[in-house]
Simulated assay, not measured.
Amino acid sequence: MRIGYARVSTDDQNLDLQNDALREAGCERIFQDKVSSAKGDRPGLDRTFEELRQGDVLVVWRLDRLGRSLKELIAQAEMLAERQIGLRSITEAIDTTTSGGKLVFHIFAALAEFERNLIRERTKASLEAARSRGRKGGRRKALTKDKRRHVANLYRSRQHSIKEICDLMGVSRATVYTYVAEFANSIDGEADNEK
Score class of each variant (00 low, 15 high):
residue 79 M to A: 10
residue 66 L to E: 00
residue 79 M to Y: 05
residue 43 P to V: 04
residue 140 R to E: 15
residue 29 R to S: 12
residue 182 E to Y: 07
residue 86 G to M: 02
residue 150 H to C: 00
residue 173 R to M: 06
residue 36 S to R: 11
residue 112 A to H: 03
residue 59 V to P: 00
residue 119 I to M: 14
residue 84 Q to C: 06
residue 169 M to G: 06
residue 67 G to Y: 01
residue 131 R to P: 09
residue 141 K to P: 15
residue 26 G to S: 07
residue 171 V to Q: 09
residue 140 R to V: 14
residue 87 L to I: 00
residue 33 D to W: 06
residue 188 D to Y: 08
residue 50 E to K: 08
residue 144 T to H: 03
residue 184 A to L: 05
residue 82 E to Y: 01
residue 34 K to G: 11
residue 185 N to Q: 08
residue 117 N to K: 09
residue 65 R to Y: 02
residue 5 Y to P: 01
residue 63 L to Y: 04
residue 13 Q to V: 06
residue 159 Q to L: 12
residue 175 T to N: 05
residue 133 R to S: 03
residue 101 G to Y: 00
residue 53 R to P: 03
residue 87 L to P: 02
residue 44 G to S: 03
residue 163 K to W: 11
residue 187 I to W: 03
residue 16 D to A: 14
residue 165 I to M: 12
residue 192 D to A: 09
residue 79 M to R: 08
residue 3 I to W: 01
residue 54 Q to A: 06
residue 183 F to C: 00
residue 191 A to P: 10
residue 37 S to L: 13
residue 172 S to F: 06
residue 14 N to L: 15
residue 75 A to Q: 13
residue 56 D to R: 04
residue 115 E to L: 11
residue 57 V to H: 00
residue 30 I to T: 08
residue 45 L to C: 03
residue 149 R to A: 01
residue 105 F to G: 01
residue 192 D to M: 11
residue 19 N to H: 15
residue 44 G to R: 02
residue 134 G to Y: 05
residue 183 F to Y: 05
residue 3 I to Q: 02
residue 189 G to R: 01
residue 172 S to L: 08
residue 120 R to A: 10
residue 51 E to T: 03
residue 127 L to S: 10
residue 181 A to Y: 10
